[in-house]
Write a protein that binds this DNA or RNA. Structure first.
Lengths: 194, 194
DNA sequence: GAAAGCGAGTAGACAGCGTCTACGGGCATG
DNA sequence: CATGCCCGTAGACGCTGTCTACTCGCTTTC
């Protein structure tokens, strides 16, 4: 019914997402995506004037997916902002681990027409959730909540990046990423004293 | 005297470093490096069987340079470990800002034969300095010093990455990266109370 | 109802890329 | 003098992204 009627534009993005998950970023060539979508190599050009714009559209799917997962985890869980931040962090790290290729693509600014904006905008609402939670979990900050949230985000992102690269396991001497998540939250929100 | 007598292997690496600084990662093609070194496109193959091995050699130069700068900053500065960590962090962020292309290459594990080890090993001594300083600046940690140092490194690295991408400026609402460096150090080492 | 127009996808060309292979030319050692 | 042997050259191959000319089929218009 609605399987075949979706336009080529969407089919290309879908094929790209599948290929990305299956083979990784470097396999994400224009021609291979077109092949998987069952069209000639010139066809994508009508919808995506350049290769980078197609990749950007694929990455946007990733941002949307990550945003959805975070929103769901934040909404479903308990109300305590600290616990919600834990859930958010876990989702972020889990995403980097399971959707490895997508995560890599999402932060390859050399492949994404990131200057054109529209992409940076996509990750901003996700950040606003973070600011809100941080300001509630840590009301007495020395710096503003935006800076505190940015610092936590950087910590989270660095962890995801270095972890997926394998460096952090080697450095921290553990295979348990949860340890690093706790360390980040404790550091930026203050240790919970029982 | 020693300008022309260096072997082609070193000349290729040098040309690559220059090209990287001048034009960025995506300009770092095998053929262009060979062109800049004044040899045919097949010549590098004798010293670097594959393109990735040449890029890895170039990246190694970056790790060495960063290591040198950190070592110098740590040695020259005051003895207080907290201040030394501040200097280290500043060097790290400064490196990511000024040697943008090199920094990007250094953490592009898809381009670097990182599984072959030898490269991951290069950044390990740098990390040991970090562990030492962290354990001295923060003797009463809830977690082990390796995990604490890894968390701080992740924070630093994430800051560098997102900052050079432009996202953190947007998120934190500031152009002063020092603010985020202070936030990271305060978070992981404890706030200094005057 | 035929003609004109047009949107969508095809197909081939082009330059550039990394890799592979066959070749040449010094320069040492025998 | 001859024989290998490094070291670099040169061309081919298949792949890439981009550009351009084209064809086919449907809709709109007269």
């Amino acid at each position: 019914m609605d399987e075949e009627n979706i336009g080529l534009r969407e089919r290309l993005i879908g094929a790209g997402v599948e290929l990305l998950a299956a083979e990784g970023v470097q396999a994400l060539t224009l021609r291979e995506i077109a092949r998987r979508a069952g069209v000639s190599h010139g066809a994508p050009r009508r919808y995506f004037p350049t290769h980078l714009e197609l990749l950007s559209a694929i990455a946007r799917r990733g941002f949307a997916e990550l945003g959805d997962r975070v929103a769901a985890a934040v909404a479903d869980g308990p109300q305590d902002p600290r616990e919600r931040l834990t859930a958010l962090g876990r989702i972020y790290l889990e995403f980097a681990r399971t959707e490895r290729g997508m995560f890599e693509l999402m932060f390859r600014h050399d492949l994404l027409e990131s200057n054109r904006l529209g992409l940076r905008k996509t990750s901003l609402p996700l950040f606003e959730v973070l600011v809100d939670l941080v300001s509630r979990a840590r009301p007495r900050g020395g710096t503003g909540p935006a800076v505190a949230a940015a610092a936590l985000w950087a910590n989270l992102h660095g962890t995801a990046q270095l972890w997926s690269w394998g460096s952090l396991q080697l450095a921290a001497g553990t295979e348990d990423v949860e340890l690093l998540l706790r360390a980040a939250l404790d550091a930026h929100l203050g240790t919970v004293q029982p």
